[in-house]
């Protein structure tokens, strides 16, 4: 008799645990408007990306097409993957002295691991992390970018 009672209580307890599980899923089924997924390309405008989000390395330019990069190459040294190549040129100043300046700041987006070490190391704050994360391209070669814009020059007063 005892075994029969325990047999039945076992079944009822089992069914009860199943019902509590079903209650949880039912709660979400009957509130379908509370879905957590988003329709991605449609919600681009309302998409919130954190300001620190590391999407790519960019070099901000001001309205006069000026940047802060001196071409010191510290970012190149700090990059673990060789994503950054610095090509410098020498400028001859008015007083006849030679000065190193950036010719091309080459950034290989395809090799970058977004570790932020270059940005952290940059002594002048010339490069920062951008929030753009849509990097899909048809041609791999377009992932190699030149960060300083053509014809740009260094801002007044930025020194290494």
């Amino acid at each position: 008799m005892k075994s029969i009672i325990s047999y039945i209580t076992e079944i009822l307890k089992g069914i009860w645990t199943l019902l509590t599980g079903m209650k949880v899923t039912a709660k979400y089924f009957f509130t379908p408007w509370k879905h957590v997924t988003q329709q991605y390309p449609e919600n681009r405008k309302t998409l919130k990306i954190a300001e620190r989000f590391r999407g790519e390395v960019i070099m901000p330019h001001n309205e006069n097409n000026e940047h802060k990069c001196t071409g010191c190459g510290i970012c190149e040294i700090n990059c673990p993957n060789g994503s950054i190549e610095i090509i410098t040129k020498s400028l001859i100043l008015e007083d006849g002295k030679k000065k190193r300046a950036i010719d091309q700041h080459i950034y290989h987006l395809g090799m970058c691991t977004f570790c932020n070490l270059c940005v952290k190391a940059c002594p002048t704050g010339a490069i920062v992390m951008g929030q753009n994360f849509e990097h899909a391209v048809w041609d791999r070669s377009t992932l190699t970018k030149v960060l300083n814009q053509p014809g740009s020059k260094i801002m007044e007063g930025v020194k290494d």
Binding site: A50, R52, R54, T113, F114, N116, M129
Partner: peptide, 24 residues
């Protein structure tokens, strides 16, 4: 994580000597 560290998975937040950024 995204807000404070700038990345969701590969955070690289603790670096020798401290943290990459201050908390948000």
């Amino acid at each position: 994580f995204e807000e404070t560290c700038g990345a969701r998975l590969t955070v690289n937040y603790s670096i020798p000597g401290g943290l990459m950024f201050d908390i948000h």
